[in-house]
Simulated scan of single mutants.
Amino acid sequence: MLMSNTDRPARLHYMANGFRVLAPGDHVVCAATGARVPLNDLRYWSVARQEAYATAQVASEALAPK
């Protein structure tokens, strides 16, 4: 039976210039807001933390020194 990747979170390995799909899915969850980010729209992540972010602003706030 074929499984659909729709409505399933992907598991990714984040690298400096992209990411590698470890487990297929159609989205990831933003580490800061919990928002769903479709893989086609994913532009912001932290290589060090291995986390995805929904927007540039969310990423900047999450990665800012405290």
Rank of each mutant, 00 (worst) to 15 (best):
Q57P: 01
H27F: 05
S4M: 01
P65A: 13
H13S: 15
S46D: 07
R8N: 14
S4A: 02
A35G: 04
P24F: 01
Q50E: 11
V37D: 03
A10Q: 04
Y44K: 13
E51I: 06
A59P: 05
A62W: 00
T55S: 09
D7G: 08
A52V: 02
S4V: 03
T6M: 09
A23C: 15
R49G: 05
R20T: 15
L42E: 04
M3R: 15
S60L: 09
L12C: 12
L2A: 12
D41L: 13
V58G: 03
Y53I: 12
N5L: 11
N17T: 12
Y44F: 15
V47K: 11
P65D: 11
H13N: 14
A10H: 00
A16T: 12
R49K: 10
A35H: 05
A62T: 04
R36V: 14
Q57S: 04
A32W: 06
S46A: 10
R11G: 09
K66T: 07
L63E: 13
G25I: 01
Y14W: 10
V58Y: 02
G25C: 02
Y53D: 08
L2T: 14
A10I: 03
A52R: 01
A52Q: 00
T33Q: 06
V28C: 07
E61P: 06
T6Y: 01
Q57L: 00
T33G: 05
A32P: 10
A16M: 10
N17A: 09
A32Q: 15
R8T: 14
P38R: 04
Q57N: 03
L42Q: 05
N5Y: 01
K66M: 04
A62I: 04
R49I: 03
A54Y: 01
G18S: 10
V28R: 03
R20K: 15
D7E: 09
R49W: 00
S60T: 11
P24S: 08
V29G: 03
A52M: 01
W45N: 13
L63A: 12
N5A: 12
V58S: 07
A56T: 07
A56F: 00
H27W: 02
R11A: 11
V29N: 06
L39V: 06
P9L: 04
D26N: 11
R49M: 08
R11K: 14
S60K: 13
C30W: 01
M15E: 14
N40I: 06
M3V: 15
L12N: 10
T33S: 12
S4R: 05
A52E: 01
G25K: 00
M3L: 14
V21P: 07
V21G: 10
G25T: 02
L39Y: 00
V21D: 08
D41K: 15
D26A: 09
A56K: 09
W45A: 11
A16Y: 01
S60N: 13
V37Y: 00
S60V: 07
P38V: 04
R20M: 14
V28F: 02
C30H: 06
Y14N: 11
A64Q: 10
L63F: 03
A59M: 13
N5C: 10
T33K: 06
C30L: 10
